[in-house]
Structure formats: C-alpha cells, structure tokens
Simulated scan of single mutants.
Amino acid sequence: MSIQTELTEQLNRYSVDFIRFVDVSALPEEQNKGFPYAILFGIALTPEYIQEITNQPDYIQQKIKREAIHRDEFHLKERKTDRLADELADFLTQKGFTAYSQSEENLAQTGSYNEAIQQTSLPHKTIAHLAGMGWMGKHDLLVTPEYGSAVSMCTVLTDAPLETVLYSPEESMCGECQVCVDVCVPGALKGKTWNIKTSRDEIVDIAHCTTCLRCLVMCPWTQRYAQRPVAVR
C-alpha cells in the first residue's frame, strides 16, 4: 500500500470532506520550508450552522458573551482539523519521512505565526488555491463551488512521495457581488477583487475584523451550499 493510500484511508476514518495532495515546490522556501508537497484536508460546516448564523447576526458575539465559544461548531472543527494535522505529521515521521504540521499550535510554537499581523507565511487557503479548489473572495476567504466558504481546513508539509495534479490558478468568480462587504459591520472589507498579485491588506483591514463570520455565511456561494436539498438515501 502506498503512503498516499495510507494517508487517505487515515483521514477518511475521521470523515473529512476533502483531501488534496499538492505540489508546493515552486513556492519560495520561506513559505514551503523546503518541503515539496502539502497534504490539504478539510471538513465542511453544516448547513444548519450556516443558517443559525444567518438568522442570528450576533451569534459569535453571544457565544463569547456566554463564554460558550468552545462549543461553537466552527471552533470545534478548527480544533479537529488541527489535531488531525498533528497526528498526520507524527504518522509520516514514524514512517521515516519528514513532515511539518501547520496546526495553529505548531505554527505558534515554531515561530511561523506572526501575531502582530495575524498571518502565517503559507496559509491553508493558498494551498487550497494551488489545489484548484476555488478562489479568494472579497472577504479574503477561500470560496469553493461545493461549500462556498463554509470549510475548516488544515495542512501538513512533507517530503513523502505524493502524486499531485497541477492546476491553473483559479480566477475570482465574485464579479460585481459585494454581499460580504455590505454585511461587514466594522467595515474591515475593502471591496477589492482578488487576483494572483493581490495582497491580503488590499482586501481586508485585519485590525478591524471581529471574526463574526457574517461574511463567510452570507457569501452567496455559502448560502447556495446551505440551502441545497439534502439527498435522500
């Protein structure tokens, strides 16, 4: 059994919604840390969760106020994907390969997260873009045709031999849509349409972002995912 098959089977046991094996060798070393490949995986947020925040604009603020953010679905799925990344990196190490988990904790411990500007050198969404999963929206989040922005992702960098598919960079499909900008109460979003040369700071004033998730849930692509009929088995 190939290492790629083992990784896929291990992640599928935890019911992830997508797995991609990505060639990141062309990125600068300060981003890929000298690793040629990345393993990207993620879990979709439930349509019910999306609808709950849609109907309750101050949902996150209320969770924080009640000191219940640790029970929030997005928070829990972020923790789960982070834990899986750490476990995957350990698994690869035990197999004799080198691996680096891009979990929040490991990024902080290894000095790869810049607290002052709240940014890492290689965001998961950048790897997802290289994997052909979607494009960057005007809210500076990944937008996928399948789930909109309703995904929790994590990545592992590795030198394990992986088969990858090379995708052309996905262009923005936001068009004239300004929904995320219009629902951003603190005015953190600038309405800039992303392209391959656009920096984060041209899209969002991160210092004014309150992480209320309104831009994530109100994106028409996210709403389309949340409202689609559930398949009857």
Rank of each mutant, 00 (worst) to 15 (best):
W221V: 02
A231W: 05
K63T: 00
E87N: 11
L162H: 03
H129V: 05
S15N: 14
G42L: 08
P229Y: 00
Y100D: 00
V232C: 06
I127P: 05
P28F: 06
V22P: 08
L213D: 01
L27M: 10
V165D: 02
R200Y: 08
C215K: 03
E163W: 01
G42T: 10
G132S: 06
V143H: 01
K192S: 08
N106S: 09
Y113A: 03
D140R: 07
R20W: 02
K65V: 02
P28G: 06
S101H: 02
K63E: 11
E170R: 05
S199K: 15
E6Y: 04
I117R: 12
R13Y: 10
S168C: 04
A128Y: 02
A150H: 05
R83V: 01
L216A: 04
S199C: 04
T126L: 10
Y59P: 04
I43Q: 09
R20P: 01
L166A: 14
S103G: 10
P229N: 06
E29K: 15
F35L: 09
Y100W: 11
E29Y: 06
E115L: 13
T120W: 04
I53Q: 09
E9A: 15
D23M: 04
T158H: 09
L162K: 00
L141V: 02
A99E: 01
E163C: 04
V181T: 04
L88A: 10
Q119A: 12
V22T: 12
T8L: 12
S172P: 03
L27W: 05
Q109G: 01
C174V: 07
F74Y: 11
I39C: 04
S168V: 01
M1V: 09
D17G: 14
L162Y: 01
V143W: 03
L122F: 04
L142P: 00
I127R: 05
S15F: 10
C215H: 07
R66H: 11
L11E: 02
I206Y: 12
Q4G: 13
R71V: 01
E146K: 15
Y100H: 07
Q178M: 15
D159Y: 07
T120G: 09
P220Q: 06
